[in-house]
């Protein structure tokens, strides 16, 4: 089964899904799936472990929400604004973080995300602990798309998700992506071939931040609020979990991981704090049993199986 066929299968599922499941739940899952894919672009293909990606996701949500609610921007423009704001934050934080590697890189991103968290807690336009509430679902494309209807909004969200997913796929399979993979594999060697590794890593960081921001903006439009939760270190950890569960460095892994984690949170919400315990157990089990994540492991077995049947 090729990547293309898996893609078509997943697309078919996504197209009929809102007739079977609750659209708002599906839209939330898509937002997180895009967020996880953006994160995976950085860890899976540039080998950079960010522990502060919530700052892009959360901040973009506030910017997008504020633009719609206070400035009266149409949602599509506000989402673009949110994504670009996250990208700008990515330029600043990335330029400093990529100077260090491994755990130090992760710690710098974490420190920045904590600063952004406190900024969002204190800034006048974020609503502090209450968050930014009551973001209206203004019609999109000059009234062409009545997104106050959940079904209409679902297909808009799906289209934007597909755009983001397609962008990530293209980045991975581009001349730039090829160099990025080489740097991930052996940075010193890439440098000795004449590639300025830091500049490639910075571009990857900015792209990842921008796409994480698009996901955050999308979530603000769907949920009609921007919350402090989306900027916390716990949210940064959650996106790591989604990518790990699905499979880091696989194209569909983060989507599967995000759907699993969001489904779990949704259906286990009644158990209260136990969600976290169950999540922890699943995390440990997956890391021990499937080191490459669910999708990574399935892909490996499939390759081994088809190689065996060809012989």
């Amino acid at each position: 089964m090729s990547t293309r066929n898996v893609g078509f299968l997943l697309l078919a599922v996504a197209l009929v899904a809102p007739w079977v499941a609750y659209p708002v739940f599906l839209m939330t899952a898509l937002c997180f799936a895009l967020f996880a894919c953006a994160f995976n672009l950085l860890i899976g293909y540039a080998g950079l472990m960010s522990f502060g990606h919530a700052m892009f996701f959360g901040l973009a949500g506030y910017v997008c929400g504020h633009a719609i609610k206070v400035w009266g921007w149409p949602p599509e423009l506000a989402m673009l604004g949110g994504a670009l704001a996250a990208g700008a934050l990515g330029v600043v934080t990335g330029a400093l973080a990529i100077r260090r590697q491994g755990i130090y890189f992760a710690m710098i991103t974490l420190a920045f995300s904590q600063m952004v968290y406190f900024f969002c807690l204190q800034a006048p336009f974020t609503g502090g602990e209450d968050g930014l509430q009551g973001i209206p679902r203004s019609p999109m494309l000059g009234g062409l798309l009545p997104v106050h209807n959940d079904m209409v909004l679902y297909y808009v969200v799906l289209a934007i998700f597909l755009f983001g997913f397609g962008a990530i796929y293209r980045i991975i399979h581009s001349p730039f992506g090829q160099v990025l993979k080489a740097i991930r594999e052996n940075e010193q060697r890439a440098v000795s071939l004449g590639y300025n590794a830091d500049r490639y890593k910075l571009v990857a960081f900015i792209l990842s931040a921008t796409l994480a921001g698009l996901a955050g903006s999308l979530k603000a439009v769907v949920m009609q609020f921007a919350t402090l939760t989306d900027v916390t270190a716990a949210m940064s950890g959650e996106v790591v979990l989604m990518a790990l569960v699905g499979g880091i460095g696989t194209i569909f892994g983060p989507v599967v991981g995000a759907v699993i984690i969001i489904t779990m949170q949704n259906y286990l919400a009644a158990t209260g704090e136990w969600v976290l315990v169950i999540q922890g157990v699943i995390f440990v089990a997956i890391v021990l049993a499937f080191r490459k994540g669910i999708v990574g492991e399935i892909a490996d077995r499939w390759r081994a199986y088809s190689a065996g049947s060809r012989k």
């Binding site: 980045i171 581009s174 992506g177 090829q178 890439a190 500049r199």
Partner: peptide, 17 residues
């Protein structure tokens, strides 16, 4: 990867490989 370097296309993330 080495042959690609002189092509000056290695920042083009929007084109197909």
């Amino acid at each position: 990867v080495a042959l690609q370097r002189p092509l000056r296309n290695s920042f083009q993330f929007w084109r197909s490989d």
